[in-house]
Each structure stands twice: as structure tokens, then as C-alpha cells.
Design a binder for these strands. Structure first.
Lengths: 150, 150
DNA sequence: ATGAGATACTTTAATATTAAACTATTACGC
DNA sequence: GCGTAATAGTTTAATATTAAAGTATCTCAT
């Protein structure tokens, strides 16, 4: 009876875990993107080029959903990529609400050069963990990301 | 012989794990801060108020190191907090290079009200994982954050 | 004491990010 | 067909973020 454990220790464990998750993610993410920054690309710009490389032509709405960003944000990042001549942006006759975004030759060369290095960086950085630990971490993140509560 | 496994599968596991880590962290972090946004505070502003609550008076350099942000960033966020009357910023006679930052009464009331709710949010959100899973995740993140390689 | 270098902070220019209000185009129920 | 909804994208205002260059102050070796 009466042993309803409103424990601070439960909360403390959650806070600990949360802060470690934030810090580790920030650290890994920053390091992994170093070769991207070195090419004068921002993380967002790289994300869009990568999506276009792997998925082909996309409209801005599709890109926004894929990268979990707002529409206004995509408008701006795309326009900066257009200025750098890395992507093209054009309306077609079908549905005049859409802009279709695609890699230019220059953009394709850049992302085809960068992506393999990026993947190697991730592999190298994640190899601090054993393969088993990586599987474990992936599974915990999958479960955490789903948010069954609420 | 020759079974040096340069496997794509190793890389694929690392990429999978990495992307799940990013997504889960982003999801948890955004949700957890909802009550902060609802009070009209940004995440950065909240972070500074929280540091001041738990550590007392700090100078901007200490805050920058604590939150892993650039000095220029702290200057701006602090100035916005000053405008809102939530923190004070003053030079003292000792070493005139430092600005000392502290909570105002208004700031203290706000963060003392907000922090417990924030901690509850984290506890609730993290409880998607069992206590054992939280310990595991914390440990994996600790290991990952250290970056033994390189 | 003084001058070189370290330390704390600011400013600027660029990019990112969102919410909210806006324009343009299409879809659809009647 | 027409008016209302929905959809795609833009713009604006606010905040965040960094690197790099700049200012002010202090430290310390000579």
C-alpha cells in the first residue's frame, strides 16, 4: 500500500538519457557533415541534393515532407541552390501550382562525389559502436521515435 | 582467405542507425519543448534560463561553453532575454571584460514554473522506453558521444 | 612599465528555421 | 459553370546560428 513511487529517480533517469541522446546526436551529426561543409554546402543544401540524387525530380512540397521542414524554408534553400547552379526549378504545363526541382549536371557531379564520402564518414563515426550495439541503438531509436504514448 | 568484408552491409547498418538516431532525437526534442514554446520562449532562451537557475550567475563565455554555442550567438539570445526583462546583464568592477548574467525576478518565476513541467514532459516522453532500455540508450549514447576513433 | 598575446564580448554577413498571412492554381459539390 | 475548398508556393518578421573580423580589457614576461 501507499508505495506509489513518484520517484525523482525515474525522472532523473529520463533526464539523463534525454540529455545524453541530444549531446551524442549533435556530436555525431556535426562531425559527419565536415566534408559537406568543406565543399561550401550547408547541411540543408546537402540534404536536398541527396534527396534529388536518390529519388529523382521532386516538387518542393515533396522535399519539405521528406526533410521534415516548412515550405518557406524549402523555398529559400532551393533558391540558394539555384543561385549556385546546383539545381533547376521549373513549372510544367500539367499543374501550374508545382515547381519541379532537379539536379543540374554540376549539382549531380557534386553530390555523386560527396555522398560516398559522407557515407564513409558515417560508417567510420558509428564504428565506435559494435555492429550489435548499432542494431540495439537503431531499435531503441525506432521505438523512441514512434511515440506510442499520447 | 580474402574474406576482408568491405561490405555494403556494414555501411548500410551504420547509415540506418544514424538516420534513426537523427529522426528520433528530433522528434523527442520537438515534442518535449512544446510547453516551452507555448510560453513564448525559444529553445535557446529556455536553455539559458535553465542554466542560470541551476548554476546561478554566469558570464557569457561560461554560458556558451555550457550550451556548446558560439559567443556571437549567446550575445544575441541574451540580449533578447534582456529585452523581455527575464535576465540582467551587468559589468562589475573586478574584470571589466565580463558581463555577468543573472535571472530577474520575472525570469526566475518563469523558469521555476516551467522547468518542472519540462522535466515531466521528458519523463513522459522517454517512458516509451522501459527503465532498462533508457539505461541502455544512455550508455550507447555516452559511448557514441565520446568518439574514441580519430 | 610596456608591449605582445590572451580573453571576453560585439558586429556583420550569410544561411537556416518557423508561423502566419498572402497569391496562384486546381478540384469538386451543387 | 461557379463558388468554395484544398493545394503549392512565396513573403515577411522573428529568432537562431556560425565564422570572421573587430574592440576592449587584462596578463605576463622581459
Amino acid at each position: 500500500m501507499g508505495s506509489h513511487y513518484t520517484g525523482d529517480s525515474e525522472q532523473q533517469r529520463a533526464l539523463d538519457c534525454f540529455i545524453k541522446l541530444l549531446r551524442a546526436t549533435e556530436s555525431v551529426n556535426t562531425e559527419v557533415h565536415k566534408s559537406v561543409y568543406a565543399e561550401g554546402l550547408s547541411e540543408s543544401q546537402f540534404g536536398i541534393l541527396e534527396a534529388l540524387l536518390h529519388l529523382g525530380t521532386l516538387n518542393q512540397n515533396q522535399i519539405a515532407k521528406k526533410l521534415l521542414k516548412s515550405g518557406g524554408n524549402i523555398t529559400l534553400v532551393i533558391d540558394n541552390l539555384v543561385k549556385q547552379g546546383l539545381v533547376s526549378k521549373e513549372k510544367r504545363s500539367e499543374d501550374r501550382r508545382f515547381y519541379w526541382i532537379d539536379l543540374t549536371d554540376k549539382g549531380r557531379r557534386l553530390i555523386e562525389h560527396l555522398f560516398p564520402r559522407h557515407a564513409e564518414n558515417i560508417e567510420k563515426r558509428m564504428s565506435v559502436l559494435t555492429p550489435e550495439e548499432q542494431m540495439q541503438l537503431g531499435e531503441l531509436c525506432r521505438k523512441l521515435g514512434k511515440n506510442n504514448k499520447q
